[in-house]
């Protein structure tokens, strides 16, 4: 394990270095074969916010994530794509230890946030989740008022010392989420009464109200109509200036639109990582190519 991570942290890709260095179109016969399960491409960046090395996840006996190493860069949007059940959501949930709540789930390996291993015994999940916020697949506002939804995080973390300060946090969060103009006159209405897209933006506002460094998004648009999806995608691009975002998506166009880097997962393995442009135009692994060309998925 140690020698492994030592190799990995050199910054070089562990396998097929030739492919990763090449900028021109990779010839079909030079692509990594389908049997290959080592990561192709450049999983590491120089200025990483989160670094993951040799991450394995087990659900009881089931090996859900197999030896994944990847970096999440500062102020970038990293998209994770892959067919259903490939482990991308599982991996995402490792990044703020949401998997702790799953019975029988075991995480091995090293995941660091700003050089601190988040799975270390000394790390408390409560401040960690304040640093690494999460937006879920289905909009899940609390059955409370819009105001209380956004104010809940700052309240429990003691981020606002007065009511006025709290009002300010709520307002700025809703503004960042692009929801302020739509709800400013009905903050006391229940958040569950909003439309699907508004609910999801409310959930994003709730996540950014605690001023996280990283926001994890688990298929945030899968329950939304195309117009609401477009709004949320615009929002993601805006948020990128301040936050690091990791987004899991089924929608490849979405990944292409919002992300700078893309990681392709397949059956628990991280198959290929690279700049989004490159992945979609010039995949270096046959599985990636199969997926983005719609051969399966």
């Amino acid at each position: 394990m140690e020698s492994m991570s030592a190799v990995l942290t050199t910054g070089e890709t562990p396998f097929l270095g030739a492919y990763s260095m090449t900028q021109e179109k990779v010839r079909q016969e030079d692509k990594a074969p389908r049997e290959n399960r080592m990561t192709v491409g450049v999983p590491f960046v120089d200025d990483a916010r989160m670094t993951c090395r040799g991450v394995n996840v087990y659900y009881g006996e089931k090996h859900a994530i197999n030896n994944v190493s990847i970096d999440v860069g500062r102020n970038e949007v990293l998209a994770m794509i892959g067919p259903s059940g490939c482990g991308k959501s599982t991996f995402l949930r490792c990044l703020n230890r949401m998997n702790d709540t799953v019975e029988g789930c075991r995480v091995e390996g090293d995941i660091q946030l700003d050089e601190l291993n988040i799975y270390d015994k000394s790390v408390d999940v409560v401040p960690l989740r304040a640093q690494v916020g999460m937006v879920f697949q289905k909009p899940n506002p609390f059955p409370k008022s819009i105001y209380d939804n956004v104010a809940y995080g700052p309240k429990i973390h003691g981020l606002a010392s007065s009511r006025a300060e709290l009002d300010e946090v709520v307002e700025s969060s809703l503004k960042k989420a692009g929801l302020w103009s739509e709800v400013s006159d009905r903050l006391d209405q229940p958040g569950t009464g909003l439309s699907g897209g508004q609910q999801q933006r409310l959930c994003i506002a709730r996540a950014i109200a605690v001023r996280p460094e990283v926001i994890l998004m688990d298929e945030p648009c899968s329950a939304l109509d195309p117009i609401a999806t477009a709004t949320v995608e615009d929002l993601i691009s805006e948020l990128q200036e301040q936050y690091t975002i990791v987004i899991v998506t089924h929608n490849m166009q979405q990944a292409a639109r919002v992300s700078q880097r893309t990681a392709y997962f397949h059956l628990g393995d991280l198959i290929e990582v690279g700049s989004t442009d490159r992945i979609f135009t010039n995949p270096r692994h046959r599985l990636t190519e199969d997926y983005i060309t719609g051969r399966f998925g």
Binding site: M98, L128, R129, A130, V135, N140, F142, Y152
Partner: peptide, 13 residues
């Protein structure tokens, strides 16, 4: 619904 639980845990409750 478990989503409420996740929402609360997700903001660091």
């Amino acid at each position: 619904p478990p989503s409420i639980r996740e929402a609360a845990l997700g903001v660091g409750a």
